[in-house]
Design a protein around this nucleic acid. Structure first.
Lengths: 146, 146
DNA sequence: GTATTCTCAACTTAAAAAGTTGACAATATG
DNA sequence: CATATTGTCAACTTTTTAAGTTGAGAATAC
């Protein structure tokens, strides 16, 4: 599962993408529109700013804007940035590879191949959609198979 | 990421699958072979036993065995059982659907469609591999793209 | 009846996530 | 330059979840 913080970050970035080219957007406005605790958003936006993916401006009429065109930011980028990896297990991460704690040797791991496949397919999907894309919302019934 | 507990559960189940039809396997043996803290494994196996997916037998020469043929248990099943869902966000879960906390309305969520796609592709992969399958281990270099 | 093995709720500890505080730094404007 | 506005950031608190342990008990075999 994505953390709440990651989800907030995604929504904040969507908000900035939706107002791309319209000058700086204030934190308070994003917080309100996206239903994110303002003080917490502070932490998140500063982080994104340190990552270089948003620019900030202080003082009156300051705020935040994307440092990059929304066409150049994928959901995969955001998730990797915030949570470090798209993989289900540390040893299946491509960018943040790590040995799984208490595991047997990777060479004879029974699930690593599968986990790598999952991570690759996930990446394919998440890297295929950009902040500039407006995705059609899913109608409510589409998901009531349970 | 999968929790440590889920990973332990998977390995324990693999161990039982590998010894399917050979009578009950003792917890201590699984713990040792799979490098899982024995006392913690106690909790995990009891849980799996309550789920009805393993059978247990007490007393001398007791132990655990799969309650179902390993051909009828997929990795998807195990992960769903242990962590409740395969999805990245609560609202994209098919079996444990839930509203995402602090989110906007699902009807105009910008990522739900994508998240549902990810969950479906993940499920397709994870439900396509069974405990009876021996997967070829991935050679160490295959993953060194970083 | 005793040794063995699983059961399970209650507990502890540790770690991560979520969120807040408050002092400070940059900028705009009068 | 004074002041209001807005972002910065490290330190902190609180809450939640994960990880693991304890110990008394119940079933079974011999």
């Amino acid at each position: 599962m994505l953390s709440q913080k990651t989800r907030y970050a995604i929504r904040a970035m969507q908000h900035l993408a939706d107002h791309y080219g319209q000058g700086p957007i204030q934190l308070a406005q994003i917080a309100e529109a996206q239903n994110i605790p303002a003080k917490f958003l502070t932490t998140i936006l500063s982080e994104l700013s340190r990552f270089g993916i948003v620019d900030s401006q202080r003082g009156k009429d300051g705020g935040y804007r994307l440092a990059v065109s929304p066409i150049d930011i994928t959901y995969g980028d955001l998730i990797r940035l915030m949570r470090g990896s798209l993989a289900l297990v540390p040893c299946a991460s491509r960018f943040a590879h790590e040995k799984c704690k208490n595991c047997l040797e990777e060479e004879n791991c029974r699930t690593r191949a599968l986990m790598l496949e999952v991570r690759d397919r996930t990446a394919e999907l998440l890297d295929g959609v950009r902040l500039s894309d407006r995705i059609d919302p899913v109608p409510a019934q589409a998901d009531s198979q349970n």
